[in-house]
């Protein structure tokens, strides 16, 4: 069970490498967005391993927080003001 956990953390390192190499700003944003979705999986898996049910609530909240963060970053990319 823990091996899955370590593989997922390795995936996060891949995303961080992409955010570091980058080349353009949208590349880094894509990496951060994908890391948000990975974090949902990690939290759900940790809820299963540690047998703490409340962590799955955090995973559910994380889905929406990551979504709103991505939308805000995308708005910034297209040169619009945030209060449109």
């Amino acid at each position: 069970m823990y091996i899955y956990f370590y593989i997922l953390i390795g995936c996060c390192f891949f995303c961080l490498i992409r955010a570091w190499l980058g080349r353009s700003i949208p590349d880094r944003m894509v990496a951060i967005d994908i890391m948000g979705t990975l974090a949902v999986g990690i939290t759900a898996l940790y809820a299963l391993i540690s047998k703490r049910g409340f962590l799955i609530d955090i995973a559910l909240a994380w889905i929406f927080l990551s979504f709103i963060g991505t939308l805000a970053l995308a708005k910034y990319l297209s040169h619009k003001t945030l209060d449109e």
Binding site: M29, T37, I63, T70
Partner: peptide, 21 residues
């Protein structure tokens, strides 16, 4: 279903933003 609904929408927004950028 929450993941299936939110993740593609975020991706559209990023792709459109990147193209306009």
């Amino acid at each position: 279903p929450f993941v299936l609904l939110t993740s593609p929408v975020g991706a559209h927004a990023l792709a459109k933003g990147a193209h306009i950028f």
